[in-house]
Amino acid sequence: MAYKNVLKYSDVTPKADYMNRRQLMGGAAGLFAGMAMGPALGASKYSTDATPNTFEEISSYNNFYEFGTGKDDPARHAHQLTIDPWSVQIDGMVDKPGSYGLEDILKKVSQEERIYRFRCVEAWSMVIPWYGFELNQLLDMAGVQPGAKYVAFETLVRKEEMPGIRTVNVDWPYREGLRLDEAMHPLTIMATGIYDKPMPKQNGAPLRLVVPWKYGFKSIKSIVRVTLTDKQPLTTWNMLQPREYGFYSNVNPEVSHPRWSQATERTIGGGLFAKRKETLMFNGYEEEVAGLYSGMDLAKNF
């Protein structure tokens, strides 16, 4: 292999090794039923080859207002959160509504690593090696009924463990939503880990959404409820500032936030002299997702 200046996360484990390990894991999968968090099972075709941020960077700079509005508040306060046991209420227009235990969910889905670009609406970005499963697997598990058009999500509200619930002026719970076709898209995942570690609490443990072509706030954390509906659901940032945060919130360098440009982004980890980078349409996932919005005016449906 030719010398490469820029190491990728996938370079940590030589391909031959992880291919072998994959065979072993295949045998082990029956025993562990997918419960164990395996090492990277080879690169997904949806993963970027950009260099991921360090675990330290990803887990120390977060927006999770349930723990406070400062970037370091989540890392400081999220340890109080208990995430075991955890269950997700799936309801609305599904065949099998009910409370789904996280362990039971994880037994039935197949998880893999997805290295995604992550672009915050505040114009900073990271590259994050998520570990998780496609949301469509969870939705199939519950059985989406024909009339359903949207998926609504809610974050846990637990005053005793989340200091921001009392101090931050938001109509809790934190709410997010996707159109059903967005939710079913293979890029849309429910993440349970970062690198080979369980999801840090400040990043939305134990189960969070990741929609890589949308601004980060769409990727709702610590999910306790998923509702299938035929009406566009309310979403927290849209409720707070409808002029500034749309339901779609697709990454779009041409549509400015009313108070700042979205044309460029600061990459986290570049230090004090990090150069700004041009923001890509749909955060670089244009080829995969542009079709979802054909014929739509993206400046109106921002």
């Binding site: 960077e57 120390s60 970037k71 370091d72 900073w124 600061r266 986290i268 980890g269 230090g271 004090l272």
Partner: peptide, 18 residues
């Protein structure tokens, strides 16, 4: 503060922090 920003004392995103 500039020194802190250069040496990691202002977190992983020192520009906004400074």
């Amino acid at each position: 503060y500039l020194y802190l920003g250069l040496t990691g004392g202002l977190g992983v995103e020192p520009i906004k922090a400074l």
